[in-house]
Write a protein that binds this DNA or RNA. Structure first.
Lengths: 214, 214
DNA sequence: CGTTTATTTGATATTGTTCAAAGCGGGTGG
DNA sequence: CCACCCGCTTTGAACAATATCAAATAAACG
């Protein structure tokens, strides 16, 4: 049994019959956003967490010099918006038309997820990313990104919902370096690119991709 | 009230009088380590969390190509070792002679810290670091590091307990680049370096340091 | 006093950024 | 239906930054 499971079961108090109705009550609120629309902004009160039902979301910060840094992309099924200090320290924005469910966290026991396992998953992915970004060359980062997105979509054949600029701001590279790396991967017959803005990706060799991510 | 506090109070079940004794029982175990000694290794069962009482700890991974990447340094008061999946995916090692307290997590309610706030703190620091590392030049990273350590020690005048190589593996730079950046900071009269291996750091201008971190 | 280890410095090669401009598609309006 | 425009991506060339390799310096230790 994992630590997260322990807490999820042992940490929450037993539910009395009187509470059942409250727990069944619709605590979540369904929301729709257009592409580019802001979901929350830095400094706002953070009293809810969100689950992506449809679409995609980017979470980012704006650095003092104006550069944007993308902390995470979120696809259907993902949760985001959990904040330690009661205030968001980042922005969240719909990338394309998206449907979300918002859950207030005033009563964590009523949430359909364990906040602890959520925080720990986030931590684990943040660390994976650190490794990928800090220790890798440009082409290594892009290779990591292509594989990471493949895991997200569960296939070797998918459409990127974000622009090259988004990818660049996510990987800490210049747009041109991202484009060059994609082109190189294609030249090496490791991936194929097609369609609108070359956003249809087909992985030809997972092994070669992994080999690039020492 | 922050989200973390909500959960810490609302998430854990009320403590009956019968449980008081068990909660007071010495669940922690005191441990001593010499400098360089391994605390746990990747793949080991992760059934405890640790608090640093004295000394310092580095948590790291070994990449397939043999490089080492340091995920975090921990000083007295810090907690580490919390793992999502029940197995450590990293190594922990005492940097110098260190005393730790180990707490089994089988019963999270008996721990003196909330696992959730722990996980969320870790997440927040991991993100800060991502920003610092991905978006910064070499000297910016070192400036960030110098400030970060100052916060840890609560002063402008402290001794680094780790080698330049440790710093390099932490910041994702070559040792030489780290040394050059330190030298540059000293040449610019932003810091002073003294003593054994130039590990005594005195910050002369916090403002100039911050200015280097865009 | 030699030996070892950590840090620093120098010269060179590699890598990524920057600036500029060229393709490429998709829409739009005539 | 076609010409044009616009956003995004890609390519090229010059430049800047960092890694790498090699060696010098310095401090610590027996």
């Amino acid at each position: 049994m994992t630590i997260a499971n322990n807490v999820a079961t042992a940490g929450f108090r037993p539910v009395g019959p009187a509470e059942i109705n409250r727990l069944r009550a619709p605590v979540q609120r369904l929301l729709s956003f257009e592409g580019g629309q802001l979901i929350y902004r830095q400094g706002e009160q953070a009293s809810s967490i969100y689950r992506v039902n449809e679409g995609a979301v980017r979470v980012y910060r704006i650095l003092p010099d104006g550069r944007r840094y993308i902390l995470a992309f979120h696809c259907p099924g993902d949760w985001f918006g959990l904040q330690a200090n009661g205030r968001h320290d980042d922005f969240a924005e719909a990338i394309c038309e998206s449907n979300l469910a918002r859950f207030p966290v005033v009563d964590p026991a009523a949430l359909p997820v364990s906040l602890l396992s959520l925080a720990m998953e986030n931590l684990a992915t943040a660390r994976e990313r650190q490794l990928a970004l800090v220790c890798q060359s440009a082409i290594g980062r892009v290779a990591w990104f292509v594989l990471d997105m493949a895991e997200h979509f569960g296939g070797s054949d998918y459409e990127l919902f974000m622009s090259r600029r988004d990818v660049a701001d996510y990987l800490g590279l210049a747009v041109e370096s991202v484009a060059r790396s994609f082109t190189k991967l294609a030249d090496l017959h490791i991936i194929q690119m097609e369609g609108r803005s070359h956003r249809l990706i087909r992985i030809l060799s997972r092994e070669k991709l992994k080999a690039l991510i020492d």
